[in-house]
Amino acid sequence: MDQHPVGPAMVHPAETASKVPVWAALLDPGVKRALVVGIGIQILQQFSGINGVLYYTPQILEEAGVEVLLSNLGLGSTSASFLISAFTTLLMLPCIGVAMKLMDISGRRRLLLTTIPVLIVSLIVLVFSEIADLGTVVNAAISTACVIIYFCCFVMGYGPIPNILCSEIFPTRVRGLCIAICALVYWIGDIIVTYTLPVMLSSIGLADVFGIYAVVCLISWVFAFLKIPETKGMPLEVITEFFAVGARQAAATKNE
């Protein structure tokens, strides 16, 4: 004890542990503000369609007519769509490596705000390629390129950043509880998107489905611009204090 001074949390770990986490702490204005950001970014990420598109990529590509791109290989529609889907998944791996490098260089917020517009553009171009009759080969090529760009940009920004933010923005005493709540929201959104996508594809068509996802991505960009701070290189205490101060300022403005 003389050689290694310790604080009260180490001297009385049971007392410190009993104070955290508690459900009542979720009512703290700073925690509520951070929880809104965590839940919001998780649900918007799912409703941008990533897991639905990822799970049903072969069916989506098959509906887009990609078999014409590999017709010289003698592949059928199903085989061609599965081959291109596998190629798309393979391309995502180096993009994840790029994201790992950029995350602490450009920052979470900046990376999010620069990659989401690419998602929006790729989805809009995909919608127009389905609506316009540019020829079978051209439509298939555009659809395939848009899906690849969508996946690669997603794993560079909108894919990992929500989980990173959720591990940074909550105070220590409720971090585990808040992350669990955000994870629950994530999986609920994943289930909704996964099981509604086939129904939507058969009822409203590929163009309308991706149009909806483009609108959600636009909402996501606005949400990120207004609500998400830059957390790159910041101590966790400073990040949590940011939300606490913001909540106090909002309360003071409301009372005025």
Rank of each mutant, 00 (worst) to 15 (best):
Y56I: 05
P21C: 09
I96C: 13
V185L: 08
M103S: 11
L111F: 08
W23R: 11
I188C: 11
I43F: 09
Q46V: 02
P5A: 15
G211V: 09
V245T: 14
S143Q: 03
D2A: 14
G76Q: 11
P58W: 14
Q3R: 14
A145L: 14
F242Y: 15
A250D: 14
A207E: 10
G52Y: 06
L226P: 04
V193P: 01
V222I: 15
K232F: 04
I181N: 08
V216E: 12
E62H: 02
L112N: 05
V36C: 02
N51E: 05
C182I: 01
A180K: 08
P21A: 10
R109W: 02
E62S: 11
I188F: 12
T78N: 14
V11N: 07
C182W: 00
G157C: 05
G49A: 11
Y186Q: 07
L102R: 03
G205R: 10
A99E: 04
G159C: 04
A140T: 01
G135H: 08
A214V: 09
I43S: 01
L61N: 00
S77A: 15
P171K: 00
I212D: 07
E237L: 09
A9R: 12
I96K: 02
G233Y: 11
N163R: 06
T194D: 10
A86C: 13
K19T: 15
L134I: 15
M92V: 14
G159Q: 03
P117S: 03
L119F: 00
V66F: 05
F243V: 11
D2S: 09
V222G: 07
K101P: 00
I239E: 07
S48K: 04
Q249F: 08
V118Y: 02
A80N: 10
M10E: 15
G176T: 11
A34N: 01
N72M: 08
A14Q: 12
I116H: 00
I148M: 15
E241W: 03
L26C: 08
V199K: 12
R173L: 12
F225R: 14
T194F: 13
S203E: 13
G107N: 08
P162L: 07
F223H: 04
S77C: 09
F243R: 06
S48M: 13
Y195E: 12
